[in-house]
Simulated assay, not measured.
Amino acid sequence: MQQERAQLHEEAQKLKEEIQLLNTAINTCQQQLPATGVPITRQRFDHMREKFREYVCTQTLQNWKFWIFSIIMEPLFESYNGMVSTASVEDLCRSTLTWMDQHCSLPALRPMVLSSLRLLSTTTAILTDPSLLPEQATLAVTQGDPAAALDHSLQPAPRQ
């Protein structure tokens, strides 16, 4: 039993040393990664952003309420777009899981949603005259600026 115990102790020591070597290798690999995360090409980033905006425009013109949803979702989309790699299936899975851990927890989502709602409440008439929101949503996606939609909808209508 003493001999077996000594053998198990020796095996445990070897495993601890192996763990230490693997941790060192992991740290070395992590230090070689770019500081901003997974390298994403600017062209892909801009293309995805444009596709998102086109989709928001199409959906908003069908139902103005989608625009409100898009305001809440845009920061989440931007973080996903900037962090998730599609270089390979493995990269996609790994970077998506990392993104979810960092950006989809309640502590991360709460301030993001609050900021989006603050933007909505300061760039539209949702708090003062919610009946203007459908028009503002349509103007925002056709003109590309929610603040412009607010400015336009607060001005008096032209007399005919």
Score class of each variant (00 low, 15 high):
residue 120 L to E: 11
residue 41 T to K: 11
residue 101 D to I: 02
residue 107 P to H: 08
residue 131 S to H: 03
residue 49 R to E: 10
residue 38 V to M: 09
residue 45 F to R: 14
residue 61 L to M: 15
residue 47 H to T: 15
residue 94 R to V: 12
residue 27 N to Y: 00
residue 41 T to C: 11
residue 3 Q to R: 14
residue 67 W to L: 07
residue 26 I to P: 01
residue 4 E to D: 13
residue 3 Q to T: 13
residue 45 F to D: 00
residue 140 A to I: 03
residue 97 L to H: 01
residue 62 Q to N: 13
residue 51 K to M: 10
residue 18 E to P: 00
residue 15 L to T: 10
residue 52 F to K: 06
residue 102 Q to C: 11
residue 60 T to V: 09
residue 47 H to P: 00
residue 156 P to M: 05
residue 62 Q to L: 10
residue 157 A to H: 03
residue 155 Q to F: 04
residue 8 L to A: 12
residue 132 L to Y: 00
residue 90 E to V: 11
residue 14 K to V: 09
residue 52 F to N: 06
residue 124 T to C: 07
residue 112 M to D: 02
residue 1 M to A: 14
residue 100 M to K: 01
residue 92 L to Q: 02
residue 73 M to W: 08
residue 3 Q to C: 06
residue 30 Q to G: 02
residue 30 Q to T: 05
residue 116 S to D: 08
residue 97 L to C: 10
residue 130 P to D: 06
residue 69 F to Q: 07
residue 70 S to V: 04
residue 90 E to P: 00
residue 117 L to D: 06
residue 120 L to Y: 14
residue 71 I to Q: 15
residue 104 C to S: 04
residue 15 L to G: 03
residue 50 E to H: 12
residue 75 P to K: 05
residue 121 S to A: 13
residue 157 A to P: 00
residue 45 F to T: 07
residue 19 I to H: 08
residue 141 V to M: 09
residue 115 S to N: 13
residue 71 I to L: 14
residue 147 A to L: 15
residue 107 P to V: 04
residue 100 M to L: 07
residue 108 A to D: 12
residue 93 C to S: 05
residue 154 L to A: 02
residue 12 A to P: 02
